[in-house]
């Protein structure tokens, strides 16, 4: 069985205990995906699994067999930066940079969820098909990604900018 990681087929590990996170970092040396808790509580290990944001620390690598994994290393096309990556730099959406890949991966999926009209806990009217972008919506939807340096404002500003540019 194989996993497609950033477009490349890779073997899944023999040991079923190996998390997708450890497989990426230790097995494939794709260390852009970070380990912050291994408890499903911080979001630093966020990757896209078939386009959906998930926690790679609580995903066994074997569960990703036959599926497509996108990590921070595969987020942008070519050598350039993804618009979110540029916006994070512009708005200083990080300090130490450790939670950053997880924040950016989560944000990229979140933008798509917003565009598809997926509601959140703070969406006033769940019946509405469209969700309007607001900082509060972004904050709620990004609350699964902890940041200890306190770059929250910059992160939200960066995402808000990309979200509204996209919509414009």
């Amino acid at each position: 069985m194989t996993i497609r990681v950033n477009g490349t087929e890779v073997a899944s590990p023999d040991d079923a205990r190996v998390s997708l996170l450890d497989h990426l970092r230790e097995g494939l040396h794709l260390t852009g995906t970070k380990v912050g808790c291994n408890q499903g509580a911080c979001g630093a290990c966020t990757v896209l699994l078939d386009g959906q944001r998930v926690l790679s620390c609580l995903t066994l690598a074997v569960q990703a067999d036959g599926r497509e994994v996108t990590t921070i290393e595969g987020l942008s096309e070519g050598d350039g930066l993804h618009p979110l990556q540029s916006a994070f730099i512009e708005h200083d959406g990080f300090q130490c940079g450790y939670c950053t890949p997880g924040q950016i991966c989560a944000a990229s999926a979140m933008l798509r969820e917003l565009a598809e009209g997926v509601p959140s806990y703070v969406t006033a009217d769940l019946a509405q098909e469209h969700v309007s972008v607001s900082r509060e919506e972004i904050r709620e939807r990004m609350s699964g990604n902890l940041c200890r340096c306190g770059a929250h404002n910059g992160i939200v500003d960066a995402i808000f900018q990309v979200a509204t540019e996209k919509a414009a």
């Binding site: 260390t31 852009g32 942008s76 540029s86 890949p101």
Partner: peptide
Amino acid sequence: ASRLDGPLKVAGRARFAAEVA
């Protein structure tokens, strides 16, 4: 001035202690 190490960090290419092969 934006952080000079920003491009490395947002790309996940800043190498932390547990990431040395």
